Computed example of a mutant assay.
Amino acid sequence: MPGSAAFWFLIPAIFTLAAIGIYPLLLALYNSFHQYKLADLASGTPFIWFDNYIATLSDPSFWGALGRTALFLCVTLPIEVALGLFAALMLHRTTLPWMRAIARVSLVIPMATTYAVVGLIGRLIFNRQFGVANYIGGLVGMPPQDWLADPTLAFVSVMIMDIWQWTPFCALILLAGLTMVPKEAEEAARLETPRWSKILWHLQRPYLLPGLTAILILRSADMLKMFDAVFTMTRGGPGTATEFISVYIQRVGFRLFDQGMASAQAILLLILTIVLSRLYIRFVYREAA
């Protein structure tokens, strides 16, 4: 039977999804309701109901890490979308096919770079002694800055690296939306008004909103679980200046060895991600529909 054959071909994918997606989620949910401290396994893992969740919600450090993550998201994501939209509009308007092809290939390079490598590149760029950032600043008369030792500059440094890596993603998604706009409609709109802002808002915006929704969902989820680049670049420091929520959860789970508390925090982070995704779909995607 063709149907049964297709089912057998799906079994490896189902097992893989269960092994790397469903099982860790269920294990984290189970641990979140238990006292599970790796440094005190002799005491067992008793069931403690919602104590881990209550302790998490009353933990100032958790709210501090979540606040830093929210600030990072609210500042960095709009910049990435704005720069990506600008790049997409420029590529959409160009009449040189070879330039568009080269730009598309160039935009893929930052996205293809792994998070850990981006963090290492950031450490080199913002190094006080031999970093490119201080060299460029010296060309305009700015004194050398200890970027990764100053709380504000370290936060800005992480922002810059994230913007460098993921603005191309926004540009490619928005460029795909712009290519869906009928050329006849664009030509008529340009004859009607020379103002690009009116064309963008009244003609191109509906075609951009589905892609914008995908960008908001994917990038928000990435920023909420952002760990590799930050940990490689700053280790969450100086102090707690770049200790985002994922870095804080890692510290609780693998430095304080409290797996129960870390699991509860991870589940709350998952709930927050789902809520944000639903809000994006409700207020952005529905407008496009």
Rank of each mutant, 00 (worst) to 15 (best):
A6M: 09
L71W: 14
W201S: 14
E187G: 07
E192C: 10
A262V: 07
K225W: 08
H34N: 06
L91M: 12
A262C: 07
Y285D: 14
A6L: 09
G239T: 04
T232P: 02
L279A: 10
L178A: 05
I271P: 01
G131W: 00
A264D: 01
I245Y: 02
G119I: 05
L178W: 01
V140P: 01
V158K: 01
I249R: 02
L107K: 02
L120N: 12
T179H: 11
D150Q: 08
Y248C: 06
W196L: 14
F231M: 13
R255G: 08
P194K: 10
I79T: 08
R205S: 13
D258H: 08
L200C: 04
V118P: 00
K183T: 15
L224V: 04
Y53F: 14
I102Y: 15
A87D: 02
G237S: 05
A154E: 01
G131V: 03
R128N: 15
G211E: 06
F231T: 13
L10K: 02
G21C: 11
L276V: 07
Q145L: 08
T234D: 02
I249M: 07
A101M: 09
P206Q: 05
P110R: 04
D59K: 00
I173G: 00
G141E: 01
S43F: 12
L270D: 04
M223Q: 09
A28H: 06
R104E: 12
A13G: 12
L270K: 09
H202R: 15
I20L: 10
F126K: 03
P168A: 01
D59Q: 03
E187W: 03
A241F: 02
L148V: 07
A88S: 09
F227I: 04
F72R: 00
I199S: 13
E80Q: 13
P60D: 00
E186S: 11
N134D: 06
K37N: 13
I109Y: 05
Q204W: 07
M159T: 06
Y248L: 09
A262M: 07
S277M: 09
T94H: 06
K198I: 08
E243Q: 11
G253I: 03
L200F: 11
P168C: 02
